[in-house]
Design a protein around this nucleic acid. Structure first.
Lengths: 138, 138
DNA sequence: TTATTTGCAAAAAATTTGCACTTGC
DNA sequence: GCAAGTGCAAATTTTTTGCAAATAA
């Protein structure tokens, strides 16, 4: 079990109820929610929290490396509390976003790309699109 | 040299000056422009063309498989006239988007992912982020 | 001729900003 | 106490939509 308050302090962030709520919410879901989804899911427990706060909080979390921003091809971003790189699978029918395990084979690929192109890859995003097992079985 | 009018007809699209202009513009650039960029770059040659037309045109092109939409992590989408899958490199400093050659090693990776997860991957997007050679040399 | 496409202007969504108020430390 | 964080409302940015006029086939 992760101590959320500790994690925030580590990053020199003030521990506020809003930040705790948002970070906890992200830790306890696999849904990769959007800002809107986060906001709505916290509406009940934190009725006073504004949408702008959700935006600002996610932005600071992103900058501090507490969350990662996903751009799966929708109109809005989605968020993931797991920051280590891992690929995502997006179902084109139900729009679920699933975490995948890291692809170890990527290491040497990146090295050879760096050499070939003289640039420096720092991170990557990999999105697979298709139909998930649930939707296939319908 | 590709005959753009022919390509449009193949897809059962009416050949209009706006479509020709947008598709040609995409074919003659490696910039992976956004809607806004496309619109502005055609402002001179097609002053009457509206932004809505650019949006609508790119949407039909996308649906017909004439262009591919990239979500490199910015607020707006970018477009690429090359539809075959290939990874992209995005410079975090100058925001240039560079086409990379396909990674052949991906085939078997996708197959094993499909097997392991019981889903069906149809396409993928791979984005590498880092510093390009130009920015490294500054 | 007629179904499509376009332009315009207005609407809708998504995100950001300014600023006064509040709060964590 | 004070810098950092929040809420609100307004502003911006990005994208979509409705509809009348224009146009490709």
């Amino acid at each position: 079990m992760i101590n959320v308050a500790e994690k925030l302090k580590e990053k020199h962030l003030k521990v506020t109820p809003q930040r705790l709520a948002i970070y906890n919410m992200l830790l306890n879901t696999h849904e990769h929610p959007s800002v809107e989804t986060i906001y709505k899911s916290l509406e009940e427990s934190h009725p006073a929290m504004s949408l702008a706060t959700v935006y600002k909080t996610l932005d600071t979390f992103k900058k501090k490396g507490l969350v990662q921003e996903l751009n799966v091809g929708e109109d809005s971003f989605r968020y993931d509390a797991t920051c280590e790189f891992h690929p995502h699978f997006i179902c084109e029918k139900c729009h679920t976003v699933v975490d995948l395990q890291s692809v170890e084979e990527l290491g040497p690929i990146i090295e050879s790309l760096n050499e070939k192109n003289n640039f420096l890859i720092k991170r990557e995003q990999m999105y697979f699109y298709g139909i998930c097992s649930d939707c296939l079985n319908k």
